[in-house]
């Protein structure tokens, strides 16, 4: 049908403007097979527009877009059968039982999962006979994911999947997504939760105002591993701080100078959150964290 070795997503120079205002302004993106790629950014950074173009729901103004080897804007049913989408806005649940719904949707696909397998994957096996409306918010979200998975997609789009989850549900959800990727499913995740990107993604792409502000794995994002450390202490009643590439030497010098305990000594390396906030500049203020 199409190549099986190349990247599942290959995007270069993607642009899309609404009424003259650019929403996506020259984005390059490449996602490897079986990997979890996170698009991270504040509201309005262009995440959803990018994803909707990749899903074939919007046409770009410019740029090269290939998803599973095809142009999403022109791809047909055979291509749709190879992707799964979990929308940002939950779908109004049906009054029918969960398993019946999944069996129905499975019928659209050439090689679907058994409804019970899909329920097992999202941890809803014990609710198979419940009406979808009787599910809790988190369970409804997992049902959305089960619907996205039932066609056995090669590529799964997860658009802000855990918004509104409590911390425990979020962790369960992450474990589920990881197990999918371990099974060979490629995942494109958009999120504005930093810890979600850090917990899940093989690669994080930070978007800011329609452009890629940084990319890399969570550990090295934005030069995090090599960033300068900050050594701070108190001297003469006033806080002091030094940014340095050699914090050990700085601490040793301080210890020698004070002849013992250095008041309120601390050595700080930037957290992912600090790297992220500096990458997106002032854009985060007022937006959700």
């Amino acid at each position: 049908m199409t190549e099986t070795d190349g990247p599942v997503i290959d995007v270069r120079g993607l642009r899309k403007a609404y009424g003259g205002a650019p929403a996506v302004d020259g984005v390059d993106l490449e996602a490897g097979r079986g990997r979890i790629t996170a698009l991270l950014g504040p509201n309005g950074a262009g995440k959803s527009t990018t994803v909707e173009i990749l899903e074939g729901f919007r046409t770009p103004d410019a740029g090269h877009v290939r998803v599973l080897g095809a142009d999403p804007a022109r791809a047909g049913r055979a291509w749709r059968a190879r992707i799964g989408i979990v929308w940002q806005e939950p779908v109004e649940p049906s009054p029918l039982p969960v398993r019946d719904l999944l069996r129905h949707f499975a019928g659209y696909f050439p090689d679907p999962l058994h409804p019970d397998e899909a329920l097992e994957l999202v941890g809803l096996s014990d609710r198979a006979r419940s009406g979808a409306r009787a599910l809790s918010g988190g369970q409804r979200r997992r049902l959305d994911v089960a619907v996205g998975l039932v066609g056995r997609p090669e590529l799964l789009f997860l658009d802000e999947p855990t918004t509104g989850f409590d911390p425990a549900s979020r962790r369960r959800f992450w474990a589920m997504v990881r197990s999918l990727a371990d099974g060979g499913t490629s995942v494109l995740l958009t999120t504005h939760y930093l810890e979600e990107a850090e917990a899940l993604a093989d690669e994080v792409v930070v978007l800011r105002a329609g452009r890629v502000a940084a990319r890399g794995d969570a550990a090295t994002l934005g030069g995090r591993r090599t960033a300068r450390a900050t050594v701070s202490w108190t001297e003469g009643g006033a806080p002091r701080r030094v940014a340095t590439d050699e914090p050990t030497r700085t601490v040793a010098d301080l210890a020698a100078r004070f002849g013992g305990e250095v008041p309120e000594l601390s050595v700080h390396r930037p957290t992912l959150e600090e790297v992220y906030l500096s990458l997106i500049g002032g854009e985060h203020e007022g937006a959700a964290a």
């Binding site: 899903e55 929308w87 779908v91 066609g151």
Partner: peptide
Amino acid sequence: AAERGDGTLRRLRGMPLP
């Protein structure tokens, strides 16, 4: 009209349903 508003139509358009 309700299906258009509550995400049902959009979800169906994302699936291989003619």
